[in-house]
């Protein structure tokens, strides 16, 4: 496979009077005192594949927002290397960095970051204006993206005249105007009401289907993370506790911290048949298979009605990849697993 879209090696971000020295000290002696420093990102190593959606999840103050700002170089890292498409962004000149952002990156912000003095249309056209596109071209493109997020009717409005959900749609439209390869979303829905949030998540999943861009999504909402992620990275105190698929996070939490996160979760909604599937190892299973990418919750009716102890599991091509233990699945469904 080609090189990852984003690669992050031993990245540190320390705030304080002498960040570089403090990071060095911490590397040798992880338990050293703070000495007035705040470690926002601690020795983070990550790879995000092209087209993958990584959700970075953590409580407030865990460093997730700083991490995403390191990835977009809105802040410079204290130590470590970040590569976008194999290129070390720490070494880019101001001009190249601006070019990179103009060509490849889009970002959505928690409190939207819209320009209050510009109309919706002008906000969405702003990145294109920065690129130097002609007025007519950028307005045409901005209208196109606005239609995509369902705000075509509101193009002459000013941000403050819109609801929070609508403002974030503008933010999303603006970040998509240049068709970025890499899309950063920094807690895009946390400022919204729960109902609107749900609606926006659906909207987001729809937009995600339209292309296969690489996405880094920040949230403090575990449900949201489980709902959207290909992979989840859980952060605590600046370090990544675990970075894995939702199923594995739930079924095999790496640390107590992660385990506590998953406690209150309805696992059946998260775990897919494929995650519980054990290899056949020669044993024979009979009857109709279930698809590996269906959650146990979705299978509940069937599991209750099922008479077989082992149910075959098929992947997306229809090949049988293993079997699902009905008792185990029912335990999980009833919340009695482990």
């Amino acid at each position: 496979m080609s090189e990852p879209a984003i690669e992050c090696c031993n990245v540190w971000k320390v705030f304080g009077p002498n960040p570089v020295a403090h990071a060095r000290t911490l590397k040798q002696e992880p338990s050293a005192g703070s000495d007035g420093h705040v470690v926002a990102v601690r020795d983070v190593t990550l790879r995000v594949k092209r087209g993958e959606m990584l959700v970075v999840m953590g409580l407030s103050g865990s460093g997730k927002s700083t991490l995403v700002r390191c990835l977009s170089r809105l802040v410079d890292v204290t130590d470590g290397v970040i590569k976008i498409d194999g290129q070390d962004i720490g070494s880019l000149s101001e001009r190249d960095l601006i070019a990179l952002r103009r060509e490849k990156m889009g970002m959505v912000f928690q409190s939207f970051g819209l320009l209050p003095h510009r109309t919706v249309l002008e906000n969405v056209a702003f990145p294109l204006e920065m690129r130097g596109q002609s007025r007519s071209a950028r307005i045409a493109r901005a209208r196109e993206v606005l239609a995509l997020v369902g705000l075509a009717e509101r193009e002459d409005y000013y941000p403050r005249e819109l609801s929070g959900g609508q403002q974030q749609r503008v933010g999303i439209a603006r970040s998509l105007a240049i068709e970025p390869d890499i899309w950063f979303l920094d807690e895009p829905f946390s400022a919204l009401d729960p109902l609107i949030r749900r609606e926006m998540q659906d909207e987001f999943l729809r937009l995600k289907q339209l292309s296969d861009r690489t996405i880094v999504f920040i949230t403090h909402d575990f449900d949201e993370a489980l709902r959207l992620a290909d992979r989840i990275a859980i952060m605590k105190n600046g370090a990544i506790e675990q970075c894995d698929t939702p199923d594995r996070i739930v079924l095999q939490p790496a640390t107590d911290y992660v385990a506590r996160f998953t406690q209150g979760i309805d696992r059946a909604r998260v775990v897919h048949a494929g995650a519980l599937c054990t290899p056949l190892n020669g044993s024979i299973v009979e009857g109709a298979p279930v698809a590996s990418d269906v959650t146990i919750r979705a299978l509940s009716r069937r599991l209750v009605a099922e008479t077989r102890a082992l149910i075959p599991v098929a992947d997306s091509q229809g090949h049988i990849i293993g079997s699902l233990n009905r008792t185990q699945a029912l335990d999980l469904l009833l919340g009695e697993a482990q």
């Binding site: 700002r69 977009s72 809105l74 101001e94 601006i98 070019a99 952002r101 103009r102 990156m105 889009g106 970002m107 912000f109 928690q110 409190s111 939207f112 970051g113 819209l114 320009l115 702003f126 990145p127 920065m130 690129r131 933010g171 603006r174 970040s175 950063f184």
Partner: peptide
């Protein structure tokens, strides 16, 4: 965030 949005949209100083 507004400034960051500006930067991410490729605005020069």
């Amino acid at each position: 965030e507004v400034v960051e949005a500006g930067k991410m949209n490729g605005a020069s100083q």
